[in-house]
Design a protein around this nucleic acid. Sequence first.
DNA 1: TATGAATGAGTTTTCATTCAT
DNA 2: CATGAATGAAAACTCATTCAT
Lengths: 216, 216, 216, 216
Amino acid sequence: MSRDPKRIPSMVKNRRLVEKRRRQIIRGACDLFVRKGFHKTTTREIARECGLSIGTMYEYIQSKEDVLYLVCEYIHSELEKRLKKALAEAGTGREGLTRAIAQHFKVMEEMSDYVLLIYQETKSLPREAMSYVLRKEEEITSFFEEILKRGIADGTLILDPSTVKLMAHNIMVLGQMWTFRRWALNGDYSLEEYTRCQTALLLDRMQPSEHGREMT
Amino acid sequence: MSRDPKRIPSMVKNRRLVEKRRRQIIRGACDLFVRKGFHKTTTREIARECGLSIGTMYEYIQSKEDVLYLVCEYIHSELEKRLKKALAEAGTGREGLTRAIAQHFKVMEEMSDYVLLIYQETKSLPREAMSYVLRKEEEITSFFEEILKRGIADGTLILDPSTVKLMAHNIMVLGQMWTFRRWALNGDYSLEEYTRCQTALLLDRMQPSEHGREMT
Amino acid sequence: MSRDPKRIPSMVKNRRLVEKRRRQIIRGACDLFVRKGFHKTTTREIARECGLSIGTMYEYIQSKEDVLYLVCEYIHSELEKRLKKALAEAGTGREGLTRAIAQHFKVMEEMSDYVLLIYQETKSLPREAMSYVLRKEEEITSFFEEILKRGIADGTLILDPSTVKLMAHNIMVLGQMWTFRRWALNGDYSLEEYTRCQTALLLDRMQPSEHGREMT
Amino acid sequence: MSRDPKRIPSMVKNRRLVEKRRRQIIRGACDLFVRKGFHKTTTREIARECGLSIGTMYEYIQSKEDVLYLVCEYIHSELEKRLKKALAEAGTGREGLTRAIAQHFKVMEEMSDYVLLIYQETKSLPREAMSYVLRKEEEITSFFEEILKRGIADGTLILDPSTVKLMAHNIMVLGQMWTFRRWALNGDYSLEEYTRCQTALLLDRMQPSEHGREMT
DNA sequence: TATGAATGAGTTTTCATTCAT
DNA sequence: CATGAATGAAAACTCATTCAT
């Protein structure tokens, strides 16, 4: 779909090397950004952390913002990858959705810091890069739209078509909520409990049958 | 409850004046932070925006972070105030909850930029200030816990006590979602539609009755 | 005439102070630029030389190029001032021109380093500033056009009107030549000799002698 | 005469190759220096422009300043070559001088950008290289001294021997003036007009006319 | 109290040059 | 000989904070 990840120019020709060095940069920068935030991290720190001299680092990027973009892009593609894999295993319909949600939440747990990072620093990206990142977010969200639509099609989910998109976003947000409300939820709920409750909340409404459901 | 809004020292003794000047600072800084973010706003800009000289401004704060704290605190207390007022009018039980949610969402709409700001910049606060802000957030959340508990008590809401807290957070987050997913939702849903759908989602699960309802 | 010396903004309000500090900056920078050239002089050196901290210096300029502009403008206005004064005393007609040329050459001698500087660094100015400087140069040149015209009018100079401008430029350039060919001329000619010869060269052609010649 | 063009060492032994590569370097660098100036041109750009890798380029030079020297030397020898050729054709005496001046001015027109370049960047050369370049300039100037002397000898030019040198410099400078005052002269004079006027100015003084004048 | 000029540590970024392959 | 990735010193510029008036 959105096949245009803003290409960041590099002074270095060797493709392989560029890939490798950028992975280094991303790894180092991710940690630092998570720990200190984008603005409080200096380029020299990033260089040191990823084992390059600043000079060398700047052979692979054009500006500090490029590093942020690289990091955001990486996180999003990682999320996408993991989610895609999870969804592939999940199957379809109601059952599939249940598993998909659980997988999504699991991914959120694993990527907790990174998701938080994206939420807090996306705004620091330059316009163009930011809209790419948001498009990516929407793309990921649409995975859930697909599952919901298939569930509607096979009759295992009851849902007004106009609310499909909203529901997909709800699923995304309730997953992310596990990362950015950790400080409030962590003491009271385990990921399993959290998943069970939120799944019930989301799925009960889409129940095709007329009788009893339980929450816990 | 949380009666300890980190006291920010001022060089100026006159209480009245301090209050007045800080209101000026908050108003100016809010706009700037929303527009450009905390880090990209300079103290000079803040001073200019709020009609003080930098020297004067620094008579009322100790550091730039203090301004952020002041702003966050202001936004939270504004949110709290509005929500409290809304909840006071909302009444109790199921009916009350419906109205409370609608009010909450309306407040989110009104305070959209500010809510977003808090979400993105809270991390920039120094430890102590940050935990105060988070505590405040939890406090606001607990308003909904109260309503839910009262609903359970009067039998108009069915909900496992262990999920009360989670539900309260869900309500908060689904409200905030209207601000930080605006870019994705705005085209497809009006605030009214959004409110109706999310309310249905949230309340259906707590329905004490045994029979079918619709979403739209 | 060209009443628009590109106004360079300053962070500091106090006009007097701005004037004073900029004079400091110009003085320090002039020396350094003459000695090392614009590009090989660092902003820190300029600041040190003029007794300001870099921070302070940057309160009065926006960029290093501004310093160059300030310096060029200063030199030009100094040249203009001295030349104007000289020309005012010079009187009119053939006599006046002789004295004007001598004064001009004297000014070139005095301002030798600065004239050289302008010749070598004007190109480093940003477009807008450069064209202002060139306009100024043309303006100064036109002083000589005026004298020539007056000489033609009063009959003490014979010159085809179409060559007035060229002659004015010649006078300018033969003056500047004393600065940028110093390395070659200094050993062989004193300023007096130089002046006498060049004046003869320039004026003989314009002699209203009994057996009139024409130029074209 | 000045047979000591500062030898620039090269890592490469093959003479032929060194010559060839340096010609490449000069060609690329000339264009860039004219367009952007020496300091604003990077070594990478030079290498790219002349089709070498930086590594390779540095096999043939020792520093960026070497490139400037190479360029200046090239321009000067080109000027010398063309002027020599022109002067050879020009003949001697008054007639010859007239033609020589016209040829010189024509060369200035052709080499306009390069002459300008030399005037602005010579100062950026390291001491030794600079004095070589200046010596070269003097050498070229002395061509005109020769012509003048021959003119004096054959009686077609009247000129005090002590002013020969000055006149030669004047001829040089009035030619160069066509390049560095282009911005002011171009609109008003064609090269032909310019040449005619300046030649008249220069030669009239040296006229062996019937009622001899002297220069003092 | 109010002001705003002064400060300089700290930031991002560039680029001439080297050297292992 | 040719290559181009690596280097890091050095550059321009910023900005939170202070303090004399």
